[in-house]
Write a protein that binds this DNA or RNA. Structure first.
Length: 241
DNA sequence: AACAGTTGCAACCGCAGGTTA
DNA sequence: GTAACCTGCGGTTGCAACTGT
């Protein structure tokens, strides 16, 4: 396991313990749930079983101890697709989305989405993180002036298929033709070719809609000859169009 | 090998809605 | 009716592990 707050000494606030859970505490919590079921969380403390709040116990059970969790297992492409699709439909209803993903908790979904958003933010506002080879190169997105402010879907031109085209390159060209995500001198990032568009870009005649994959995944984005590039644009960048 | 930047995720907090006394 | 408590949810934080230079 990595991450978490292992390094933090368990704090004591009164008789309430906070911080990382110990294996012994997990055992006690498991025994409690086996005996009484996953409820009455606050009685765990009142019974003197654990110096944890009911809230903390519930969270620990739901996110780590309950059976059939896919802990430590990355989201599959199918799972990513479900999250992306549902988030676009119902918003940040992580608990609701998680019900469609067996073995995943709302926290898992939330963390997955949060990571995805961070990548987008970095893509839009800064240079790609670990890809220091891209330092000094400006993301094409970042070169787009007033991308959101001048995006008025009602004023967007129609493309040659009668679809409302995105307001600014690269979105108003065939996505499969997008040449470079980053550019400076001879170094370019290529093969940026898959991401979804918001529903307001869809044609009424679905047969004329832009042919795009609905559920891009991290692995869909590569950096031509420059190594892997796992950054990708996010559906939310179109939200206000 | 050392360092710095980034990622993944456990666990916290505040709030809202439901239940009970 | 309402105060107190419980439960669940979404947002945020912070650290160990990872990765690239």
């Amino acid at each position: 396991m990595r991450g978490g707050r292992k390094g933090i000494p368990a704090m004591e606030a009164g008789c309430i313990r906070k911080g990382p859970w110990l294996a012994e505490e997990d055992v006690v919590l498991r025994n409690y749930v086996n005996t009484y079921g996953p409820r009455d969380w606050s009685s765990i403390r009142s019974k003197g079983l654990l110096p944890r709040t009911g809230k903390s116990c519930r969270l620990r059970w739901v996110n780590k101890l309950q059976p059939n969790l896919k802990s430590g297992c990355k989201f599959s492409e199918e799972e990513e697709g479900i999250v992306i699709d549902m988030q676009s439909k119902i918003g940040n209803k992580w608990a609701q989305i998680a019900t469609h993903l067996p073995g995943r908790t709302d926290n898992d979904v939330k963390n997955f989405w949060s990571t995805r958003q961070k990548r987008l933010a970095r893509l839009l506002n800064t240079l790609p993180a670990r890809s220091r080879r891209n330092q000094g190169k400006v993301p094409l997105y970042a070169q787009v002036p007033n991308f959101e402010s001048n995006a008025n879907s009602s004023e967007l031109p129609l493309n040659d298929q009668g679809c409302q085209a995105p307001p600014h390159p690269p979105y108003n060209q065939s996505l499969l033709d997008i040449p470079d995500l980053f550019s400076e001198g001879q170094e370019v990032i290529t093969e940026f070719n898959q991401f979804s568009l918001p529903s307001n870009f869809a044609c009424e005649d679905s047969s004329q809609a832009m042919q795009l994959p609905l559920s891009p995944t991290f692995s869909d984005f590569e950096v031509g000859d420059h190594g892997s590039f796992d950054e990708f644009p996010d559906d939310d960048i179109f939200k206000d169009l």
